[in-house]
Design a protein around this nucleic acid. Structure first.
Lengths: 108, 108
DNA sequence: CAGAGAAGTTAGTTATGACTTACGGTAAGT
DNA sequence: ACTTACCGTAAGTCATAACTAACTTCTCTG
Protein backbone atom coordinates (compact mmCIF):
# COMPACT_ATOMS: atom_id res chain seq x y z
CA UNK A 1 0.00 0.00 0.00
CA UNK A 2 2.93 2.31 -0.62
CA UNK A 3 0.99 3.96 -3.44
CA UNK A 4 -1.97 4.90 -1.24
CA UNK A 5 -1.03 8.56 -0.97
CA UNK A 6 -0.40 8.67 -4.71
CA UNK A 7 -3.86 7.30 -5.41
CA UNK A 8 -5.41 9.84 -3.03
CA UNK A 9 -3.62 12.72 -4.72
CA UNK A 10 -4.48 11.36 -8.15
CA UNK A 11 -8.18 11.19 -7.32
CA UNK A 12 -8.31 14.71 -5.96
CA UNK A 13 -6.22 15.97 -8.87
CA UNK A 14 -8.36 14.45 -11.62
CA UNK A 15 -11.48 15.74 -9.89
CA UNK A 16 -10.95 19.08 -11.62
CA UNK A 17 -12.40 19.01 -15.17
CA UNK A 18 -9.64 21.22 -16.60
CA UNK A 19 -6.92 18.91 -15.29
CA UNK A 20 -8.84 15.88 -16.54
CA UNK A 21 -8.99 17.44 -20.00
CA UNK A 22 -5.26 18.14 -19.93
CA UNK A 23 -4.53 14.61 -18.78
CA UNK A 24 -6.63 13.08 -21.57
CA UNK A 25 -4.87 15.20 -24.19
CA UNK A 26 -1.49 14.07 -22.87
CA UNK A 27 -2.68 10.45 -22.90
CA UNK A 28 -3.14 10.77 -26.67
CA UNK A 29 0.25 12.33 -27.29
CA UNK A 30 2.93 14.30 -25.36
CA UNK A 31 2.81 18.09 -25.77
CA UNK A 32 4.41 21.36 -24.62
CA UNK A 33 2.70 23.93 -22.41
CA UNK A 34 2.08 26.39 -25.24
CA UNK A 35 0.41 23.80 -27.45
CA UNK A 36 -1.94 22.78 -24.67
CA UNK A 37 -2.76 26.38 -23.75
CA UNK A 38 -3.62 27.15 -27.39
CA UNK A 39 -6.30 24.45 -27.34
CA UNK A 40 -7.75 25.48 -23.98
CA UNK A 41 -9.97 28.45 -23.08
CA UNK A 42 -7.63 29.47 -20.24
CA UNK A 43 -4.31 31.32 -20.13
CA UNK A 44 -0.88 29.69 -20.36
CA UNK A 45 0.05 30.25 -16.70
CA UNK A 46 -3.18 28.53 -15.68
CA UNK A 47 -2.20 25.51 -17.77
CA UNK A 48 1.26 25.60 -16.24
CA UNK A 49 -0.14 25.55 -12.72
CA UNK A 50 -2.46 22.64 -13.50
CA UNK A 51 0.45 20.71 -15.00
CA UNK A 52 2.43 21.30 -11.80
CA UNK A 53 -0.41 19.78 -9.77
CA UNK A 54 -0.60 16.81 -12.12
CA UNK A 55 3.16 16.38 -11.77
CA UNK A 56 3.01 16.43 -7.94
CA UNK A 57 0.33 13.73 -8.09
CA UNK A 58 2.61 11.52 -10.20
CA UNK A 59 0.25 11.64 -13.16
CA UNK A 60 2.60 13.33 -15.65
CA UNK A 61 6.35 13.82 -16.12
CA UNK A 62 8.25 16.73 -17.61
CA UNK A 63 11.35 16.75 -19.81
CA UNK A 64 13.19 19.83 -21.11
CA UNK A 65 13.71 20.12 -24.87
CA UNK A 66 15.36 23.41 -25.65
CA UNK A 67 13.24 26.22 -24.28
CA UNK A 68 10.17 23.98 -24.32
CA UNK A 69 9.02 21.55 -21.63
CA UNK A 70 7.42 18.40 -22.98
CA UNK A 71 4.80 16.82 -20.72
CA UNK A 72 3.74 13.18 -20.98
CA UNK A 73 1.61 10.82 -18.89
CA UNK A 74 3.27 8.89 -16.06
CA UNK A 75 1.98 5.32 -15.54
CA UNK A 76 2.73 5.53 -11.80
CA UNK A 77 -0.20 7.78 -10.91
CA UNK A 78 -2.84 6.05 -12.97
CA UNK A 79 -1.47 2.70 -11.79
CA UNK A 80 -1.86 3.71 -8.16
CA UNK A 81 -5.47 4.69 -8.83
CA UNK A 82 -6.09 1.31 -10.42
CA UNK A 83 -4.73 -0.45 -7.36
CA UNK A 84 -6.88 1.65 -5.01
CA UNK A 85 -9.96 1.01 -7.11
CA UNK A 86 -9.39 -2.72 -7.42
CA UNK A 87 -9.03 -3.09 -3.65
CA UNK A 88 -12.44 -1.48 -3.18
CA UNK A 89 -13.98 -3.09 -6.22
CA UNK A 90 -14.05 -6.57 -4.69
CA UNK A 91 -15.39 -5.24 -1.40
CA UNK A 92 -18.16 -3.27 -3.14
CA UNK A 93 -19.25 -6.29 -5.14
CA UNK A 94 -19.32 -8.52 -2.06
CA UNK A 95 -21.26 -5.98 -0.03
CA UNK A 96 -23.76 -5.47 -2.82
CA UNK A 97 -24.17 -9.19 -3.41
CA UNK A 98 -25.02 -9.72 0.26
CA UNK A 99 -27.66 -7.00 0.04
CA UNK A 100 -29.13 -8.51 -3.13
CA UNK A 101 -29.44 -11.87 -1.37
CA UNK A 102 -31.31 -10.30 1.53
CA UNK A 103 -33.70 -8.59 -0.86
CA UNK A 104 -34.29 -11.85 -2.73
CA UNK A 105 -35.16 -13.72 0.47
CA UNK A 106 -37.56 -11.03 1.65
CA UNK A 107 -39.31 -10.93 -1.72
CA UNK A 108 -40.25 -14.62 -1.50
CA UNK B 1 -18.93 4.56 -23.40
CA UNK B 2 -22.35 4.98 -21.85
CA UNK B 3 -20.76 5.17 -18.41
CA UNK B 4 -18.42 8.02 -19.30
CA UNK B 5 -20.43 10.69 -17.49
CA UNK B 6 -20.73 8.39 -14.48
CA UNK B 7 -16.97 7.97 -14.34
CA UNK B 8 -16.49 11.73 -14.61
CA UNK B 9 -18.88 12.40 -11.75
CA UNK B 10 -17.35 9.61 -9.69
CA UNK B 11 -13.85 11.06 -10.07
CA UNK B 12 -14.90 14.56 -9.06
CA UNK B 13 -16.99 13.16 -6.22
CA UNK B 14 -14.26 11.02 -4.67
CA UNK B 15 -11.82 13.91 -4.96
CA UNK B 16 -13.16 15.25 -1.68
CA UNK B 17 -11.50 13.54 1.33
CA UNK B 18 -14.67 13.58 3.42
CA UNK B 19 -16.67 11.83 0.72
CA UNK B 20 -13.85 9.35 0.18
CA UNK B 21 -13.92 8.54 3.90
CA UNK B 22 -17.69 8.04 3.83
CA UNK B 23 -17.41 5.83 0.76
CA UNK B 24 -14.75 3.64 2.37
CA UNK B 25 -16.85 3.22 5.51
CA UNK B 26 -19.83 2.16 3.40
CA UNK B 27 -17.63 -0.25 1.47
CA UNK B 28 -17.01 -2.08 4.77
CA UNK B 29 -20.66 -2.21 5.77
CA UNK B 30 -23.93 -0.35 5.04
CA UNK B 31 -24.92 2.31 7.55
CA UNK B 32 -27.50 4.99 8.34
CA UNK B 33 -26.82 8.73 8.21
CA UNK B 34 -26.75 9.14 11.99
CA UNK B 35 -24.23 6.35 12.50
CA UNK B 36 -21.88 7.86 9.92
CA UNK B 37 -22.24 11.37 11.36
CA UNK B 38 -21.41 10.07 14.86
CA UNK B 39 -18.05 8.79 13.58
CA UNK B 40 -17.21 11.96 11.65
CA UNK B 41 -16.07 15.38 12.90
CA UNK B 42 -18.80 17.16 10.92
CA UNK B 43 -22.51 17.69 11.48
CA UNK B 44 -25.25 15.34 10.33
CA UNK B 45 -26.56 17.64 7.57
CA UNK B 46 -23.05 17.84 6.15
CA UNK B 47 -22.94 14.05 5.95
CA UNK B 48 -26.39 14.05 4.37
CA UNK B 49 -25.26 16.48 1.67
CA UNK B 50 -22.16 14.43 0.89
CA UNK B 51 -24.25 11.27 0.64
CA UNK B 52 -26.56 13.04 -1.83
CA UNK B 53 -23.56 13.87 -4.01
CA UNK B 54 -22.32 10.27 -3.80
CA UNK B 55 -25.80 9.09 -4.77
CA UNK B 56 -25.96 11.40 -7.82
CA UNK B 57 -22.60 10.02 -8.94
CA UNK B 58 -23.94 6.47 -8.79
CA UNK B 59 -21.50 5.49 -6.05
CA UNK B 60 -24.06 4.65 -3.34
CA UNK B 61 -27.72 3.69 -3.12
CA UNK B 62 -30.29 4.51 -0.46
CA UNK B 63 -33.10 2.38 0.96
CA UNK B 64 -35.65 3.46 3.57
CA UNK B 65 -35.97 1.36 6.72
CA UNK B 66 -38.46 2.99 9.03
CA UNK B 67 -37.33 6.53 9.72
CA UNK B 68 -33.74 5.57 8.89
CA UNK B 69 -32.13 5.64 5.47
CA UNK B 70 -29.61 2.89 4.94
CA UNK B 71 -26.81 3.76 2.51
CA UNK B 72 -24.69 1.11 0.75
CA UNK B 73 -22.13 1.15 -2.04
CA UNK B 74 -23.32 0.84 -5.63
CA UNK B 75 -21.05 -1.18 -7.95
CA UNK B 76 -22.12 0.92 -10.95
CA UNK B 77 -20.12 4.03 -10.06
CA UNK B 78 -16.89 2.30 -9.10
CA UNK B 79 -17.29 0.05 -12.14
CA UNK B 80 -17.56 3.05 -14.45
CA UNK B 81 -14.37 4.46 -12.93
CA UNK B 82 -12.61 1.16 -13.54
CA UNK B 83 -13.65 1.21 -17.19
CA UNK B 84 -12.48 4.82 -17.61
CA UNK B 85 -9.16 4.06 -15.96
CA UNK B 86 -8.54 0.89 -17.94
CA UNK B 87 -9.15 2.69 -21.24
CA UNK B 88 -6.50 5.27 -20.32
CA UNK B 89 -4.22 2.77 -18.64
CA UNK B 90 -3.36 1.01 -21.91
CA UNK B 91 -2.84 4.33 -23.67
CA UNK B 92 -0.59 5.63 -20.90
CA UNK B 93 1.55 2.49 -20.95
CA UNK B 94 1.90 2.60 -24.74
CA UNK B 95 2.77 6.29 -24.75
CA UNK B 96 5.31 5.82 -21.99
CA UNK B 97 6.87 2.77 -23.64
CA UNK B 98 7.40 4.74 -26.86
CA UNK B 99 9.11 7.48 -24.89
CA UNK B 100 11.32 4.98 -23.05
CA UNK B 101 12.40 3.52 -26.39
CA UNK B 102 13.38 6.95 -27.70
CA UNK B 103 15.40 7.64 -24.57
CA UNK B 104 17.13 4.27 -24.87
CA UNK B 105 18.15 4.93 -28.47
CA UNK B 106 19.50 8.39 -27.70
CA UNK B 107 21.53 7.07 -24.79
CA UNK B 108 23.43 4.62 -27.03
C1' DC C 1 26.72 39.57 -26.47
C1' DA C 2 22.10 41.25 -27.28
C1' DG C 3 17.42 40.01 -28.50
C1' DA C 4 13.50 36.85 -28.77
C1' DG C 5 10.81 32.88 -27.51
C1' DA C 6 9.11 29.64 -23.96
C1' DA C 7 7.88 28.58 -19.40
C1' DG C 8 7.75 28.97 -14.13
C1' DT C 9 6.55 32.22 -10.24
C1' DT C 10 4.13 35.74 -7.52
C1' DA C 11 0.36 38.72 -6.03
C1' DG C 12 -4.22 39.70 -6.15
C1' DT C 13 -9.05 38.93 -7.32
C1' DT C 14 -12.96 36.07 -7.87
C1' DA C 15 -15.75 32.10 -7.71
C1' DT C 16 -16.86 27.58 -6.14
C1' DG C 17 -18.15 24.50 -2.55
C1' DA C 18 -18.03 22.80 2.23
C1' DC C 19 -19.89 23.62 6.68
C1' DT C 20 -23.35 25.08 10.29
C1' DT C 21 -27.77 26.59 12.05
C1' DA C 22 -32.62 26.53 11.54
C1' DC C 23 -36.66 24.54 9.67
C1' DG C 24 -40.05 21.14 7.67
C1' DG C 25 -41.53 16.37 6.81
C1' DT C 26 -42.26 11.37 7.78
C1' DA C 27 -42.50 7.09 10.44
C1' DA C 28 -42.63 4.57 14.91
C1' DG C 29 -44.12 4.50 19.84
C1' DT C 30 -47.24 5.75 23.78
C1' DA D 1 -53.54 12.17 18.61
C1' DC D 2 -49.22 13.60 20.60
C1' DT D 3 -44.46 12.99 21.16
C1' DT D 4 -39.98 11.44 19.75
C1' DA D 5 -36.48 10.10 16.53
C1' DC D 6 -34.32 10.36 12.01
C1' DC D 7 -33.51 12.66 7.95
C1' DG D 8 -33.56 16.05 3.87
C1' DT D 9 -33.60 21.05 2.54
C1' DA D 10 -32.64 26.14 2.62
C1' DA D 11 -30.09 30.14 3.75
C1' DG D 12 -25.96 32.13 5.04
C1' DT D 13 -20.96 32.27 6.17
C1' DC D 14 -16.30 31.20 5.29
C1' DA D 15 -12.28 28.96 3.34
C1' DT D 16 -9.99 27.10 -0.61
C1' DA D 17 -8.37 27.19 -5.15
C1' DA D 18 -8.71 28.65 -9.94
C1' DC D 19 -7.72 32.35 -12.91
C1' DT D 20 -5.34 36.62 -14.78
C1' DA D 21 -1.70 40.07 -15.12
C1' DA D 22 3.00 41.23 -14.43
C1' DC D 23 7.62 39.75 -13.64
C1' DT D 24 11.72 36.72 -13.78
C1' DT D 25 14.56 32.94 -15.58
C1' DC D 26 16.57 30.12 -19.06
C1' DT D 27 17.77 28.71 -23.74
C1' DC D 28 18.61 29.32 -28.52
C1' DT D 29 19.84 32.37 -32.34
C1' DG D 30 21.50 36.49 -34.85
Amino acid sequence: MAYACLAIDALATLGDPTRRSLFERLAERPAAVGELAAQMPISRPAVSQHLAVLKRAGLVTETAQGTRRIYRVDPRGIGAMRDWLDSHWAQALASFAAFADDQGEEAE
